[in-house]
């Protein structure tokens, strides 16, 4: 989804997106497969004191320290990360980060034609990171632009707020 231009660029009717589908709090989300480095079973996550609320902590991924981000916070889903079973290791903003998810469903090919823009009811500054809604056989899937959903300066800003109070 997030091609070089950061936007959906349909290249003809038969153009398909390859998307990794995962579930958080019962909602199906998708991110472009090129973004995803791997999916791992959720290991022990070490808490990082004073980090932003959507930073769950850090994990050891074969010798590298990788931050784990909790999309629940960012997507205002409620619930908590303890239900998460897997971590999707993805490239976000050019760095490697993990996303806590409740389950990974599959890798799907989605024809671009079946992707609808986000409905007007949910647009607004908070949902810029929704690229579109894709119709799948089993229901709908929210396509995410991770770069927009997880901008470091926003995460830092969140921490600033916490410090301030």
């Amino acid at each position: 989804m997030s091609g070089p231009g950061g936007e959906l660029q349909p290249r003809g009717e038969d153009w398909e997106l390859q998307v990794v589908l995962f579930e958080i709090e019962g909602v199906t989300y998708g991110v472009e497969v090129d973004r995803v480095l791997e999916v791992i079973l959720r290991p022990e996550v070490s808490r990082v004191p004073s980090a932003a609320a959507c930073v769950e902590g850090v994990i050891n991924l074969r010798g590298s320290v990788i931050p784990v981000l909790d999309l629940r916070q960012r997507l205002r889903l409620g619930g908590d990360a303890s239900r998460a079973t897997h971590i999707v290791i993805a490239l976000v903003q050019g760095t490697v980060a993990g996303l806590s998810v409740d389950g990974v469903l599959q890798v799907a090919r989605i024809p671009v034609a079946s992707v609808a823009p986000p409905p007007a009811a949910i647009t607004g500054p908070d949902v810029r990171y929704v690229e579109g809604i894709a119709k799948l056989e089993g229901g709908l899937c929210v396509l995410l632009d991770l770069d927009l959903a997880l901008r470091p300066e926003e995460l830092l800003a969140v921490r600033g707020d916490l410090d301030g109070k």
Binding site: E44, S46, V48, P49, S50, A51, A52, V55, V58, I59, N60, G63, S64, V65, I66, P67, L69, V92, Q93, T95, V96, A97, L150, P152, L155, L156, D163
Partner: peptide, 27 residues
Amino acid sequence: LKSLGDFLGTVPGLTGATILGSGELAL
């Protein structure tokens, strides 16, 4: 010493993280 990465930036009180022989993480 490993950086906590761009997402965490500089966290007050921490200079980074390290991985122990056991694979466990230490701040």
